[in-house]
Amino acid sequence: METAPLIDPFAREISYLRVSVTDRCDFRCTYCMAEHMQFLPKRDLLTLEELDRLCSTFIRLGVRKLRVTGGEPLVRRDIMTFFRAMGRHLESGALSELTLTTNGSQLARFAGDLAAVGVRRVNVSLDTLDADRFAAVTRWGRLPQVLEGIRAAKAAGLRVKINTVALKGFNEDELFRLVDWCGAEGHDLTFIEVMPMGEMEEADRLGQYWPLTDLRARLAGRYRLIDLTERTGGPARYVRLQETGQKIGFITPLSHNFCESCNRVRVTCTGELYMCLGQEDRADLRSVLRASDDAAVAAAIRAAISHKPKGHDFDYSRARISGQMSRHMSHTGG
């Protein structure tokens, strides 16, 4: 089978795949999904075997980093079957990193198993350290359960990176508390601007938007920020706090477009390949998977990558939302 690397029209090599294994979640975060979601019927989702075939094809085509997302990936039934299948690519050296983004609710249960198959770090979404606020923003979540999961991950030898969505009027006053807690626990921390995804009143989305330029300026008022050149394959840009040595990341799709170095694509739990999180263009890989062999799947992937756009169109700058996506973040997988 042909194994030449995936190169998009702008000479970017695609080496990073984010794959959603479910649209379901045990939380209902206010910026991610509606409280009463209509989830997809099981027949629409890729089976674990189909996910294995698809991800293995991407790996043969040069993907070196695989991030498993959801919804909440650890609520998918028998999900460790898939992680074990991907672990064989770590053992062969074809895959350099297998990781996941999680809300942390199931980490106490799965951390040891994840470490055993070769997962070395996890990203945990955590927007507040206040139990009441946590319950409000997640609707169904409990902060002690997540903190227990984070402790279990650390005990299993997993590196934990905390992902915090910057929400105006919600967690602005916790900026330094979050930084101090992550520093004490040894966790890296990345802040993310809220993105215009899903069905939401425009005024509400604009009201939530806290530009990271402002957040960074507040940090600079207390710490000396040293810009780092390192990249982890994703969109974050990093600084180190000189006083504590901590690494802080910023993902800024609105205030600073990071598309020029994009090396990643996303596959949904239904087998749709999105070449850009902020565009609606997509390719249906499920039908190819179910009707053809792996060579045809590889050809379909190449054809889709040939249409990868230069960048997204997210924009809050004129007091209205431009480039808004109608699909929920839980569908695409973050």
Rank of each mutant, 00 (worst) to 15 (best):
Leu254Arg: 02
Asn263Phe: 07
Arg222Ile: 06
Val239His: 07
Arg264Asn: 11
Leu254Ser: 04
Glu272Cys: 11
Pro211Asp: 08
Lys247Val: 13
Val267Lys: 04
Arg266His: 04
Cys259Arg: 05
Phe258Thr: 03
Thr244Gln: 05
Cys262Val: 03
Tyr238Gln: 04
Pro235Ala: 11
Arg205Thr: 14
Glu243Gly: 04
Gly234Lys: 03
Ala217Ser: 14
Gly234Thr: 10
Arg205Trp: 13
Glu260Asp: 15
Glu243Lys: 02
Val267Tyr: 04
Leu206Tyr: 02
Pro253Tyr: 07
Thr268His: 05
Thr244Tyr: 09
Gly245Ala: 01
Ala220Tyr: 08
Gly207Asn: 05
Ala203Glu: 15
Arg264Phe: 10
Thr252Leu: 04
Arg224Ser: 12
Asn263Met: 07
Leu215Arg: 08
Gly249Thr: 09
Thr213Lys: 14
Gly207Trp: 01
Asn257Lys: 10
Arg240Phe: 01
Gly207Lys: 01
Arg240Ser: 12
Tyr223Pro: 07
Ser255Arg: 08
Leu225Gln: 08
Asp204Val: 15
Pro235Thr: 09
Arg218Asn: 12
Ile248Phe: 05
Thr268Ala: 10
Gly221Trp: 02
Gln242Leu: 14
Val239Ile: 05
Arg231Cys: 08
Gly207Leu: 06
Phe258Ser: 00
Phe258Met: 01
Thr244Arg: 07
Tyr238Leu: 03
Thr232Ser: 14
Ser261Asn: 15
Thr244His: 08
Arg231Phe: 07
Ala236Gln: 07
Thr252Val: 00
Thr268Asp: 06
Gly245Lys: 01
Val265Gln: 00
Asn257Met: 02
Glu243Pro: 03
Leu228Phe: 10
Cys269His: 10
Leu273Glu: 01
Leu206His: 01
Tyr223Cys: 11
Cys269Asn: 11
Leu228Val: 11
Glu272Gln: 14
Ser261Arg: 13
Arg222Val: 08
Gln242Arg: 14
Arg218Asp: 13
Gly249Pro: 09
Ile248Met: 04
Gly234Arg: 07
Glu243Thr: 05
Gly234Cys: 07
Arg224Trp: 11
Thr268Trp: 07
Ile226Leu: 15
Arg218Pro: 09
Leu273Asn: 00
Leu241Lys: 07
Leu273Pro: 04
Leu219Gly: 03
Tyr238Arg: 06
Tyr238Ala: 02
Ile251Leu: 06
Ala203Thr: 15
Gln246Asn: 01
Ala217His: 12
His256Pro: 06
Glu202Asn: 08
Asp204Phe: 14
Thr268Leu: 05
Asp227Arg: 13
Tyr223Ile: 03
Glu230His: 13
Gly271Tyr: 09
Val239Arg: 00
Thr270Met: 11
Asn263Tyr: 09
Phe250Met: 03
Gly234Leu: 03
Phe258Gln: 04
Gly233Asp: 02
Leu254Glu: 00
Glu230Ile: 12
Arg240Gly: 04
Arg231Lys: 13
Tyr238Lys: 06
Leu212Lys: 03
Ala236Thr: 00
Gly234Met: 05
Asn263Val: 09
Gly233Ala: 10
Val239Tyr: 00
Phe258His: 00
Leu206Ser: 11
Glu272Asp: 14
Leu225Gly: 04
Ala203Ser: 15
Ser261Lys: 13
Pro253Trp: 05
Asn263Gln: 12
Gly233Cys: 02
Thr244Ile: 03
Thr252Trp: 05
Trp210Lys: 07
Tyr209Arg: 10
Gly221Thr: 08
Leu225His: 00
Thr213Ala: 15
Gly234Trp: 09
Arg222Tyr: 09
Ser255Cys: 03
Val265Tyr: 10
Cys259Gln: 08
Ile251Phe: 07
Tyr223Leu: 10
Tyr223Asp: 06
Leu254Cys: 04
Leu254Phe: 08
Pro211Leu: 03
Glu260His: 14
Glu230Ser: 13
